[in-house]
Design a protein around this nucleic acid. Structure first.
Length: 885
RNA sequence: AGGCGGUUAGCUCAGUCGGCAAGAGCGCUUCCCUUACAAGGAAGAGGUCGUGGGUUCGAUUCCCUCACCGCCUACCA
């Protein structure tokens, strides 16, 4: 063998990916057959491939490759998301290094910079997906800011606007003072924080105090009331009285509101309609004025009097100080509470009153609820259904305007005449339909990025154009995603699918787990706990990464990745590689030119036991693997294949075939074809999981087989076949394996190297009667067997006897045997089995059990009892033989 | 506060309909560089399946309690 005995993935992976891409084998052009379609959850253009992407895309790749091999016309549409806020932040940071800001540049120049950045880095993650092996159709690569996609976005906006489902309104929304934009409710992340609860003494106009509790004393400057619960007796006497608000000297009333909790704090709450969503509601109910005390950057504004100009947190300190000086703080308690943060920059969110665009969601949500209720759209695992429905049933309107520049500009124009209604239009309107004025200005804001991604499953096919792609590939089949974007994205896609296509966007949603580190935290760069998948690809190859990831990730379960998780995959690849080298060697030694594996008939006649056995086991695997894939149990499939290939095919079958001399007729006519056939089928079954090595080896097989497909992914997925239904062969082989293990065990017990050939004789062992079986046992246990006529005699220093069924075998050993080792071992074994035996006996002697348990179980238990009994007898006998007792 | 998930070998995880003598990989012990593979081979050790109840002939599996870990929803300032 010239080639390395270690598998080196680097070159092979690069080579094959290029071949796949150039051949266009992932690019369906025909609109025939049954389509199987996946749209990728589009990663951000700012993104790097992280381990979560690796898992997400490996799963999609497995599905696509398996379905393609199963005869579907498969399509996996890739693409990226423009990620408005995230991308704008990244580019702004770049600019900052040059001392520039977007304001200095101006909108147009700034957007030029973003596009430049996008050209340069926006496809970084796409290239990384290729390294993972993703079978995407790159010719259909899509970007949410493509011309077509933008058309889809404005079309959707205008349609919803005209339908009255989009409106503009002044409301309290989530505001990020760092990104200076509004956010939707979903874009706020709540984190538990250790803060303080301040008890403030608010002076009543006519003397005395009322004490209110707050976590945000700086907002007091915007207070317009103090509220108490109407049934709170403590405060009955102050209702309607006025409070002189410190620092700003405003007179504010004490009011009653049901919403106030009597139990919390002092039972009296300060009301700041401008800076708290709950207070906003109280304000609305009582017609309270709103006083905004901060600007868009989170700094105190002119309404904050002496505190104007201070940052909100700075102001908090200052105001607490000032309150203390005026003896207006009753007490301060430590307090943990949940604080909202911007999901893009993690700045503390400020509830803020502003004019924004909203989508009315209730009506849109209904079909998305119905389709799941009817079972026409299913979640795997099923439990997500509840989360999904719960969110949709309690849905709030969606704030879609963002005060940033990067994104789809809101397709609305305002007439110079303020009395004219806003004009929503796909094209730039030339004049105001109301007054005819040509002086129109477009809304400054852009749309939430998710307002484009919710159109993904049909916009990728160029909707609203009526394309062939759209007609044939929509609706898609399976969506593979993580739980984090169930609301952000999945639910909204379902709504959009019904609203604009009149049909669900996919019928199955597989939600996989989140990859976490060993402490249970999400892997993320900022935490510094991330495993970089690219590093692993460099080190061990994408196949190793994929295999490790998949075999550790159970159905919908989160996974804590240990840092060496890829080792299993790496070692497995090496095993496959070397077993293949062995095959090549055997073929060469036996001058095999062409093995016909396509026509099973050619080699499946007159098979001996071992060949029947491995084919039968393979046959069972084929069925099992397919079932696993159908139910998203990828880890089980991967594990099962691993076990079969390594521990059945390599450990036993290949080893067995080594007993034949070169050019043995049966070896050439049957064994080698079976070896090659099982290899080929295994490669196919493994291909969705580890595409690169299987492609390489598949192609190498063309030299000596009738394999002709260009790529393994174009071959046909193995099918269960009745021809290989050799159940009895499986049973017989298990017996043979047992004898071999028994003999090896004797060798190990006495520290005899496996390599040392032992002479042995036997009596009354049925497995040793057939030539084939005897040869296998002799070969695998490295012994020579000759029959004995008489019954067993006692073990002695040169001979060790072990019973087997009604017979025995005895091994001749040179040198001294330490009988005590064997004795101890047997005694231990005996104790262990005795316990289980007694349990089983007890079970069987119980009337209840015999009466109520199903027949099968009773049979099984009896069989177990008999087996244990036999084992015990065997050990007893072995002990006797050993000691002569 | 509610909902969901988890708790199985030293570590990371499997375990479908209740019927196992409870599995894997890594790690560990002993022996072996046997011409496919030391990223390997052979033989092993290691678990009262988080706690306490219940249902059942039988529970790691189903039900309830509690404990701890994690996640997701929620306007208690």
């Amino acid at each position: 063998m010239v080639e390395s005995n270690r598998y080196n993935p680097a070159e092979i992976e690069t080579y094959w990916y290029k071949q796949w891409e150039q051949s266009g084998c992932f690019h369906p052009e025909e609109y025939s057959g049954i389509p199987y379609v996946i749209v990728i959850p589009p990663p951000n253009i700012t993104g790097y491939l992280h381990i979560g992407h690796a898992l997400n895309n490996t799963i999609q790749d497995i599905l696509i490759r398996w379905k393609k091999m199963s005869g579907f016309n498969t399509l996996w549409v890739p693409g990226t998301d423009h990620a408005g806020i995230a991308t704008q932040n990244v580019v702004e940071r770049e600019l900052m290094k040059q001392g520039l800001t977007r304001e200095k540049l101006g909108r147009e120049k700034f957007l030029e910079q973003v596009w430049l950045w996008r050209e340069k880095y926006g496809n970084r993650i796409i290239e990384q997906l290729k390294r993972l092996g993703a079978a995407c159709d790159w010719q259909r690569l899509c970007f949410t800011m493509d011309e077509n996609f933008s058309l889809a976005v404005s079309t959707v906006f205008v349609r919803l606007f005209e339908k009255g489902l989009i409106y503009r309104g002044t409301r309290i929304i989530n505001w990020c003072p760092r990104c200076t934009t509004a956010l939707s409710d979903e874009e706020v992340e709540y984190k538990e924080e250790n803060g303080e609860l301040f008890y403030l003494r608010y002076p009543l106009e006519d003397g005395g105090f009322i004490i209110v509790a707050t976590t945000r004393p700086e907002t007091m400057l915007g207070d317009t009331a103090v509220a108490v619960n109407p049934s709170d007796k403590r405060y009955k006497h102050v209702i309607g009285k006025k409070i002189r608000l410190p620092f700003v000297n405003r007179l504010i009333p004490v009011i009653e509101d049901q919403q106030v909790e009597i139990e919390f704090g002092t039972g009296a709450v300060k009301v700041t309609p401008s800076h708290d969503p709950a207070d906003y509601n109280i304000g609305k109910r009582h017609n309270l004025p709103s006083v905004t005390v901060m600007d868009e950057k989170g700094r105190m504004n002119e309404n904050a009097g002496e505190f104007a100009g201070l940052d909100r947190f700075e102001c908090r300190k200052k105001i607490v100080e000032a309150l203390k000086n005026h003896n207006l703080i009753e007490k301060i308690e430590p307090y943990t509470h949940r604080v909202g943060h911007c999901y893009r920059c993690h700045t503390v969110i400020e509830p803020y009153i502003s004019k924004q665009w909203f989508v009315k969601m209730k009506e849109l949500a209904q079909p998305a609820i119905d389709v799941v209720m009817k079972g026409e759209l299913k979640f795997y695992p099923e439990r997500w259904t509840k989360n999904y429905l719960n969110w949709l049933n309690n849905i709030e309107d969606w704030c879609i305007s963002r005060q940033i520049w990067w994104g789809h500009r809101i397709p609305v124009w305002y007439c110079e005449n303020e009395n004219c209604p806003p004009i929503a239009s796909i094209q730039i309107p030339l004049s105001c339909p109301q007054c005819g004025s040509k002086n129109l200005t477009q809304d400054e804001d852009v749309l939430d990025t998710w307002f484009s991604s919710w159109l993904w499953p049909f916009a990728v096919f160029k909707w609203p154009k009526k394309t062939k792609d759209l007609e044939y590939f929509y609706p898609t089949s399976t969506l593979v995603t993580a739980q984090e974007i169930l609301f952000f994205w999945v639910a909204r896609m379902v709504m959009a699918g019904f609203e604009f296509m009149g049909e669900k966007p996919f019928s199955a949603v597989y939600i996989h787990g989140t990859v976490r580190d060993e402490t249970g935290r999400k892997m993320s760069k900022s935490l510094g706990n991330a495993i970089d998948p690219l590093e692993i690809i460099d080190k061990a190859g994408a196949d190793a990464l994929r295999f490790g990831l998949i075999s550790l990730t159970a159905f919908g379960q989160d996974v804590f990745l240990p840092d060496k998780f890829y080792v299993k995959g790496r070692n497995f690849l090496n095993k496959i590689w070397n077993s293949f080298r062995y095959l090549e060697m055997v073929l060469e030694k036996n001058n095999c030119r062409k093995v016909e594996i396509k026509n099973v008939e050619t080699f499946s006649r007159n098979l001996q036991l071992a060949e029947k056995w491995i084919l039968a086991v393979l046959n069972q695997k084929v069925k099992h693997i397919t079932e696993c894939l159908e139910s998203f149990r990828f880890n089980e499939a991967a594990e099962s294949l691993y076990e079969f290939f390594w521990h059945q095919y390599c450990d036993w079958y290949i080893e067995m075939t080594k007993r034949f001399p070169e050019n043995d007729p049966y070896l050439v006519s049957n064994v080698i074809p079976v070896l090659v056939y099982v290899m080929a089928k295994s490669l196919q079954l493994l291909h969705p999981f580890i595409p690169f090595i299987t492609e390489e080896l598949w192609n190498r097989m063309k030299k000596f087989t009738d394999i002709s497909e260009r790529f393994i992914v174009e071959s046909v997925w193995p099918d269960y076949s009745n021809i290989f239904n050799f159940d009895d062969a499986i049973e017989k082989m298990e017996q043979i394996k047992k004898i071999v293990v028994e003999i090896r065990d004797v060798k190990t017990t006495f520290k005899i190297p496996v390599t040392r050939k032992l002479e042995a004789s036997y009596y009354g062992i049925p497995e040793l009667i057939s030539d084939e079986q005897r040869q296998m046992i002799e070969f695998l246990s490295n012994t020579t067997f000759s029959p004995e006529e008489k019954s067993a005699s006692i073990s002695d220093k040169n001979r060790l006897v072990r019973t087997w069924k009604d017979g025995y075998f005895s091994l001749r050993v040179e040198g001294i045997l330490d009988i005590s080792v064997e004795r101890e071992k047997l005694l231990n074994e005996k104790n262990k089995i005795l316990k289980i035996f007694e349990q089983t006996e007890k079970k069987l002697s119980s009337m209840d059990f015999v009466k109520r348990a199903p027949e099968q179980v009773i049979e099984k238990t009896k069989k177990l009892r008999d087996e244990l009994e036999y084992e015990l007898k065997k050990i007893e006998k072995n002990l006797q033989l050993l000691t002569g007792e």
